[in-house]
Design a protein around this nucleic acid. Structure first.
Lengths: 200, 200
DNA sequence: GTCTATATCTAGATAGAC
DNA sequence: GTCTATCTAGATATAGAC
């Protein structure tokens, strides 16, 4: 079952984007030719270029779609106003790891470091809405007294850096167990780094 | 002053590798053509192909050189047997950040996630010696009672994930201050995540 | 060993029938 | 809108003089 599911997208566009996601991650953007996309998607060259301006535009449309869906999922996750920052942080970690496990290509494409090489105009991923939301949860935590006062960038790097690193290891098949089995240990461990000292 | 300094390498090889490091990071491997390398290095096509089998071989030789130098620096850093795990960890963090600040291209090339796209035979970077050493310092810390008992992979992801994430932010020009100014705060913060509870 | 000139190939993109 | 056939540019890699 594929990840992309925007009903506004035509059948061919969806086919092409799904194939692009698969091939760009498996072989890399530059090692994927238009003929490769034709073969994998079953859509002809002409139709591809009817739907997309050029190859770069396919990658951009793919990224836009993924970020749009991710943002929606993330917002749904944070709807409950009774959750405190620690609970929200845990929910985010679970969702990050779950997505990496269920849709590794999605995580790999979005989290990859080298977007600029083939999408020079794209804003850095860490300034995208989903990443900003991650930081906001920690800033809420500071206001709630659950996270100690510190530079928000440092807090975010420390609290999510470990989780993202674990996800990268999992995507690179460097972990013996499925990523989700590490969820509790990694989220509690990383949270310790920013948690306020508990007064007894 | 360039980073590469192996006296065993010929003048032309050094020129080519230095240009490759610059261009592969600035434009990306696939956006760098042999003519680009010729222009930037001042070495002719023929001489490049005399020294290297093909373009991929240039990247492999570059990676090998960088890892070799990095390993040497890292070993020098950990020579002092009187340092405990926390001191070693701090020294490693300083060195990681200092290298990213002084030689951003080196860090960017070595830490980039997508090596496999142009060096399919290369072992994943996290199984290279310098990365293994990072984990060992934490395992020593567990034996010394400074790091709490936990899965070594989790410990490493958490302790270094935040630091590496900060370095990535710095390389992406997302930080207002030079990376070194964050050294103390980030290393202390990340260490907290794995530090053993202090008995009072 | 170093250079210039060039062969070869395949990619991205287009034209135009249907 | 979709397809096949094709153009063209530019890349990698080589040949062969010096």
């Amino acid at each position: 079952m594929s990840y992309l599911n925007n009903p506004e997208l035509s059948e061919v566009k969806l086919k092409v984007l799904n194939s692009a996601l698969h091939l760009f991650v498996e072989k890399g953007y530059f090692n994927t030719s238009i003929p490769d996309l034709v073969k994998h998607s079953g859509v002809s060259t002409g139709s591809i270029y009817h739907g997309f301006k050029d190859k770069q535009n396919i990658a951009e449309a793919l990224m836009q779609q993924l970020l749009w869906q991710i943002e929606g999922e993330q917002n749904a996750l944070l709807l409950d106003p009774t959750q405190n920052a620690w609970q929200q942080y845990q929910a985010l970690c679970r969702w990050l790891i779950q997505t990496a496990q269920d849709h590794p290509h999605v995580s790999q494409f979005v989290l990859r470091a080298q977007h600029k090489e083939f999408m020079p105009d794209l804003a850095p991923i860490c300034s995208s809405k989903p990443f900003i939301k991650l930081r906001e949860v920690l800033e809420n935590g500071m206001q709630q007294g659950l996270v100690r006062e510190m530079d928000p960038m440092i807090a975010a790097a420390s609290a999510y850096g470990g989780v993202l690193r674990l996800i990268q290891l999992s995507l690179d098949q460097m972990l013996p167990k499925p990523a989700l089995e590490y969820l509790d240990e990694i989220s509690e461990t990383c949270w310790r780094s920013v948690a306020a000292d508990i007064q007894k």
